[in-house]
Design a protein around this nucleic acid. Sequence first.
DNA 1: TTGCTCCTCACGTCACGTGAGGTGGC
DNA 2: TTGCTCCTCACGTCACGTGAGGTGGC
Lengths: 153, 153
Amino acid sequence: MELLRISELAKIAGVTVRTVRYYEELGLLPSYERKQSKHRRYTEKDLIYLKRIIQLKGYGLTLQEIGEIIELSKDDPSGEKRRTLLLRRYREKLENALQKKEEMDKYIAELKWHIDQLEKVANFQSCPGSECLQCLYKEKCRFAITNHERRQA
Amino acid sequence: MELLRISELAKIAGVTVRTVRYYEELGLLPSYERKQSKHRRYTEKDLIYLKRIIQLKGYGLTLQEIGEIIELSKDDPSGEKRRTLLLRRYREKLENALQKKEEMDKYIAELKWHIDQLEKVANFQSCPGSECLQCLYKEKCRFAITNHERRQA
DNA sequence: TTGCTCCTCACGTCACGTGAGGTGGC
DNA sequence: TTGCTCCTCACGTCACGTGAGGTGGC
């Protein structure tokens, strides 16, 4: 089994060399003692670990959360602890994602509306500004002041 | 017209006091000379500006991009320059958003699949690890090594 | 006078990017 | 021997958060 150099590992995994070193620094990847050479060498097992980290990051876990999962595996023969924590995190991220998706739809609709407006409205020299208060689009604009808000101050 | 204190302005706009000061520091909000008092006072016009910044941020513009829009208005009587730049940015962000939304759907599906798997699979003590190479889920897992990738190294 | 709000530094956060300056392996 | 890759600092980024230590206004 050939050993991989850091640039090879990084390339296969699709990250930068700096990222690999950073993960090692955080304890997410093993740092072997480098005796004869000061250069890092990696096995295919390390590649799997790295890809796993990237996958979990893709699922929205922070590097700290990923670190917690890895720590857990060190004293968890049955794997139950890890399974429980992973399930919790996955469910959290799923909920976030579902909510974000809904916001996304509103966001896209709003952007489209604004593009449309910018293409059609003839002049907007003083937009936004105090002129907003008399603006015809007052009700549709999100940043115009309303009396309701003034009262909440 | 009453002047607002920084905390009042921030509260109405839904941001922190620190954020208001930060935007001033970046030149996104005006910094009046504070003569008699060292305390900042804001007009309703300032509130509109702040809400505008927040809105643009909501559309995915960075503070730097917002700064560019604001700079542009300073020498742009017809408003044409600003309209053009805004349209460009909006279209960029819209494209990003549409792409992100598609990724989102895959992401959600994948998370659901993993939750399902974690609930059903009986044991995964050595997952992930070199055991992945003989794993039954090899084809479905994103982090298992494939020969294809090995060749690309 | 008390306490709440304000002020200015200035360091911390997150996940790396980006040089600087030097060394190792084919 | 040359040049490509590797190494370790260490500061920079983005949009603020979070104290520390001090002052101002009702």
